[in-house]
Design a protein around this nucleic acid. Structure first.
Lengths: 120, 120
DNA sequence: TTGACATATTCCTATATGGGAATGTAATGT
DNA sequence: ACATTACATTCCCATATAGGAATATGTCAA
């Protein structure tokens, strides 16, 4: 069995860095394809293809305006990814506290030794 | 050019559902491979291969204990994914408020019409 | 209608994949 | 030493890419 299709869900769709770039760019306001091409410096067909994938998983919405197609990010579709990762948040916070604790312990230890040379 | 390797970063590695299952399972405590096999009902070689990918991107850490290999999730490696998605959080919050507003407007409108039949 | 502009699709190809099956390797018990 | 347990790796294969090039579709303007 090959890898799951990029269009199978948001996880697979956002695995591609350029698609994340596009979503970042379209987050603030809707934009025509040409703007994406200019802003990200990609080939137009490449952008159209990425947009197709993003559309298929609902990560962007489209609207026609004359000859242009105005795309915008649908943040709601990113939510499942956010929520899955959020379940791990407390673990890296614990890790951070431990690191901070060790750093503080080291500081205390250093301030005990009066003649110590400070590392630059 | 084909798709980026699953081992190229956390985004690609967690695109595979089974790998997310494994990370969920290993989040609370370290476990030997056999436990993962039993818990998720996958073939042992399959689990070993997924673990290999997860190791390559630093999403799990390993430790040997006799003949077993004890794996545990390294939450820190999930952080980049969390942080990328977090940038969109305010957008779906706004969207939610808008949905709520519309729902409330609809409720108000409904309560104006006294004889209205309620949908079940 | 014809041409220009904006975007989408198709065809091509090298490549990485996940599963299945089989085999390899390392540590333990006797 | 040998069998057993616990994992890891290898080989095979059908399949879905992403990019490049070329072409198709759709919309407006004159």
């Amino acid at each position: 069995m090959p890898r799951a299709a990029t269009t199978s869900d948001a996880f697979n769709a956002v695995a591609e860095p350029r698609r994340r770039d596009i979503l970042n760019y379209l987050a603030l306001q809707e934009r025509p394809v040409g703007d994406i091409v200019d802003a990200l410096g990609l080939e137009q067909p490449s952008v159209s293809k990425h947009l197709r994938v993003l559309r298929d998983v609902g990560l962007v919405h489209v609207r026609r305006h004359g000859r242009q197609m105005l795309y915008r990010t649908n943040a709601e579709a990113i939510r499942p990814v956010h929520e899955w990762t959020a379940k791990f948040e407390r673990f890296w916070r614990h890790q951070l506290t431990r690191i901070k604790e060790r750093a503080e312990a080291k500081m205390a230890e250093a301030s005990m030794q009066e003649g110590k040379i400070k590392p630059d």
